[in-house]
Design a protein around this nucleic acid. Structure first.
Lengths: 223, 223
DNA sequence: CCTTACCGAACGCACGTTCGATCGAAGAAA
DNA sequence: TTTCTTCGATCGAACGTGCGTTCGGTAAGG
């Protein structure tokens, strides 16, 4: 039996300098699987899915090439697990943080903060999700797509409420607005480095402020 | 001698149904090169750079596999030409349209409109540019990167002027604002279909309005 | 003695690239 | 005008490599 799809946040709490070395391959089956998954995520984020070969994943994880297939059915299954768990974690995190928040504008800020801080803590995983959306096929693609859709619905609902509550008669399209917000968030991996580009919170605050009030609106931005 | 980097807008005026068939391989050297480049651009946009094999490019362009190497030094050279010409065209187009426009807010609108309409007219090329930024290496990568940087400077200067002229004391970071704008624009290829998602002008107007005034600001958006 | 965990070696395939040859047109020589 | 020569354009076939995957085996532990 190979990997199913449980066990969230496999990149949980890991110091920035704690690069996976081929020593800590001890532990339970799930721990070893996660260890490989972390190495694969890092490789896919750095080189892209197609260029990240199974041989290099094996080397980075400290197992043999054939040994990988004890944990994963195929290369595509690795990418699927990365995307499934990452989207799942992100969705759960957002829903948790949104619990009890009623003002749509505040909901928007909370959602953006959750996304940016999750990104800062899991850059490789989120890059592998943003950039390799179309590298899955068939059933795997559909399941990942479904999770993305749920995340879209969550955000779209906030945007809808924003329109109804705070700007009932503007002419903006909610779908375009939502996708623009996703554009800002999903493009983060191209330029944002939490090490030297400001705290996740300040970035999130600015993105949320821009989205709500624009560059020329009432400036509540920055930090 | 293989291809240099002249000849802009190689996807110039082509009806939507005019899929490149293996008939019109007549014409000058440059015309045949462009014909191949169009086929390659379409394939790379649809399947990604790594998956778009030289054999499939050859088939789509109506030439033999070996025949490709009469026009291009390597597969990477094809991608470089696509990116170099596309970024070059986009940069030229933006500079032309901005000529004579003095108000920074209007400059922003003009720039966004130019980008979105160029996108609508050259979706495959712009997707190959947005999505395959890191597929080039060495000198090719540096040259493409330089063009992107020029486009960034152009946009960043508009944002700077916007801050100085219209919002001198807000707390937003100009770099974050510029990259957010690029996020909105470069994410277009994931969701915007000009065939059924509204005119490029209306999309551009909404993106510009959102960027300037936000969702809750003075609504000048829509069309 | 069976199962789990793992590996070395190989298989078959698809890839980017190269090589040698062909064919037609343009230009020089007769 | 005819013949000879060159050269750009093109192709079929192959080369070498790296890929994802599989197979048969081994060693340890219950």
């Amino acid at each position: 039996m190979s990997a199913d799809r449980s066990e969230h946040s496999f990149e949980g709490a890991k110091g920035p300098a704690a690069v996976a070395r081929s020593s800590d391959i001890r532990g339970s089956y799930d721990e070893r699987l996660n260890h490989i998954l972390v190495a694969a995520t890092d490789l896919i984020a750095r080189m892209g899915y197609e260029r990240a070969s199974m041989r290099e994943v094996a080397k980075a994880a400290g197992v043999s090439l054939a040994g990988l297939y004890h944990y994963f059915d195929s290369k595509e299954n690795i990418l699927f697990l990365i995307q499934f768990r990452t989207f799942g974690s992100l969705l759960n995190l957002s829903r948790e943080k949104l619990h009890g928040v009623t003002d749509p504008a505040e909901q928007l800020r909370v959602m953006v903060r959750a996304h940016v801080s999750y990104f800062a803590a899991n850059m490789a995983a989120l890059k592998a999700c943003s950039h390799e959306l179309d590298s899955l096929t068939g059933q795997s693609y559909e399941e990942a797509r479904q999770l993305r859709r749920e995340y879209y619905e969550l955000t779209r609902a906030i945007v809808n409420r924003l329109f109804e509550t705070h700007a009932p008669n503007n002419k903006l399209d909610a779908h375009v607005a939502t996708m623009s917000l996703f554009g800002m968030l999903n493009w983060l991996y191209r330029w944002y480095d939490p090490q030297e580009g400001g705290s996740p919170t300040s970035i999130a605050n600015q993105i949320a402020s821009q989205f709500l009030y624009g560059l020329l609106g009432e400036s509540k931005g920055g930090d």
